[in-house]
């Protein structure tokens, strides 16, 4: 048996064993989630972000919006009444990193998609107090001024693919996506067509109200407008999601 003294006088060994002991706490909580049924609910509609939404998400993270906004509605009555259906694990399965959070200086944004018009978002992000006089949210006028950089969007998608997001590179992967998400969505997940898709979505949506250019605002608003809208909760009965816990 290893002696107390051996460990105590050997700092390398001490570090390794300390790490082993303290990681037990994490492991017993995390590892089972990978094989317990229903950790991630089976639900229709959740898909990875399109290239434009993905860029919007990156900017959301860059600007630190998560320091004031969570994206997780807890299963409590008061949260339901204010924000809508509680968030599902499945809804953030393609989020790396997820944006759950518990810091709510501003409201939760998990279901903000469709709540406001694009116009409102643009105006609110440029000057929040022009629409909500009491707001303490900062102004983000540069989102409208900055041109959207998307030359590296393929690389960003590939990076996410590596951690398990089903963006497709090969024909087989594309076919698998068609099977899983349908043809329209599968097309937006194709890395080879990412830039083309990004521009097409921005032009069709005209999220920033200026059709002539592609600004960071286009991407952020496209992202905000999709939050929480993927699952059609109408098709599940009230108790459906409770059975996964």
């Amino acid at each position: 048996m290893m002696k107390h003294e051996t460990i105590e006088t050997n700092s390398g060994l001490l570090i390794i064993l300390t790490l082993a002991v303290i990681s037990i706490g994490g492991l017993v909580e995390i590892v089972p989630l990978f094989y317990i049924d229903g950790t991630v609910e089976e639900v229709e509609g959740v898909r990875p972000y399109s290239p434009l939404e993905l860029r919007g998400r990156d900017i959301y993270v860059r600007e630190g919006c998560y320091t004031c906004h969570s994206q997780m509605i807890r299963p409590f009555r008061d949260e339901y009444l204010r924000y809508g259906h509680y968030s599902l694990a499945a809804e953030s399965q393609y989020d790396h990193p997820f944006q759950w959070g518990s810091k709510r200086t501003g409201p939760d944004l998990a279901r903000v998609g469709g709540k406001y018009s694009n116009d409102w978002h643009v105006q609110h992000l440029v000057a929040p107090r022009s629409v909500v006089p009491e707001s303490i949210m900062p102004n983000y006028p540069w989102l409208l001024d900055n041109e959207l950089q998307y030359a590296d969007v393929e690389a960003r998608m590939k990076a996410l693919k590596r951690v398990g997001v089903p963006y497709s590179e090969t024909v087989e992967e594309y076919r698998a996506n068609v099977e899983k998400f349908g043809e329209d969505v599968a097309r937006t997940l194709d890395i080879g067509r990412a830039r083309e898709n990004l521009v097409a979505q921005a032009q069709a949506g005209n999220f920033d109200g200026n059709g002539a250019r592609l600004s960071e605002m286009d991407a952020v608003v496209a992202y905000l407008q999709v939050l929480g809208t993927m699952v059609d909760f109408g098709q599940y009965d009230e108790g459906h999601f409770a059975q996964f816990r």
Binding site: P75, D237, E238, F241, A242, Q243, F244, R245
Partner: peptide, 17 residues
């Protein structure tokens, strides 16, 4: 649920319901 009573183990979603 749909007029039928469901009894289940303690969990936040059931408590929510």
């Amino acid at each position: 649920v749909n007029g039928e009573e469901v009894t289940t183990h303690w969990n936040t979603r059931a408590l929510f319901m």
